[in-house]
């Protein structure tokens, strides 16, 4: 129950940050960090698949409603939830999945954790920026993906630091 409340609070906080802080960031129109996916990144590793998918879909719909682009975030964040178990299995190892708990730099090691976050952010940003600008020029889309992803990884790593010590034994 407490874990549920914690996750709800984290999610609401991330939504607020996304809407009022990070949606207003853009350096030259190419950096658009979508950090609310940190919610999906930090979910417990042993979460049931159906719940993960529903949460991914729900997170996308919530952001769609706040930002006014119908469906785009829902498509991409559901996709991210779908591939997360595979990414976790490949980059963090099966052992952590059996153990459960949330993935943090303290538990899985900073290098592994960064690789994991980077993979998740890229898996979100690549389809997102392509779908957002279907008729756009390739160069600009690539630039947006690279710069936004780099920025997002940094921000997510920084924002997850409070979890490193408090959540170790969940």
């Amino acid at each position: 129950m407490i874990r549920f409340l914690e996750y709800t609070a984290t999610f609401v906080l991330l939504l607020i940050l996304q809407e009022f802080v990070f949606d207003n960031i853009n350096f030259g129109g190419v950096v658009n960090p979508y950090i609310y996916i940190m919610f999906l990144i930090l979910l417990p590793l042993d979460i049931p698949g159906w719940l993960l998918l529903l949460l991914g879909f729900g997170a996308g719909v919530a952001v769609d409603f706040m930002s006014g682009i119908a469906g785009l975030h829902a498509i991409v964040s559901t996709w991210l939830a779908f591939v997360r178990p595979t990414v976790v299995g490949l980059l963090l190892g099966k052992d952590f999945v059996y153990e459960g708990g949330i993935p943090t730099a303290g538990r899985v090691g900073a290098g592994k954790f960064l690789r994991y976050v980077a993979a998740m952010v890229l898996l979100f940003d690549i389809p997102f920026f392509i779908l957002e600008d279907l008729s756009g020029s390739v160069g600009v889309i690539v630039l947006r993906i690279v710069l936004s992803s780099a920025f997002s990884v940094g921000i997510i790593y920084f924002l997850h630091l409070p979890f490193v010590h408090t959540q170790l034994k969940v």
Partner: peptide, 21 residues
């Protein structure tokens, strides 16, 4: 296959809103 089915169902909803919206 419930995982894949659920994924396909949710994506279908999202994509139809995205395309027809």
């Amino acid at each position: 296959i419930h995982y894949a089915l659920l994924f396909i169902a949710l994506e279908a909803i999202a994509i139809s809103v995205f395309l027809h919206g």
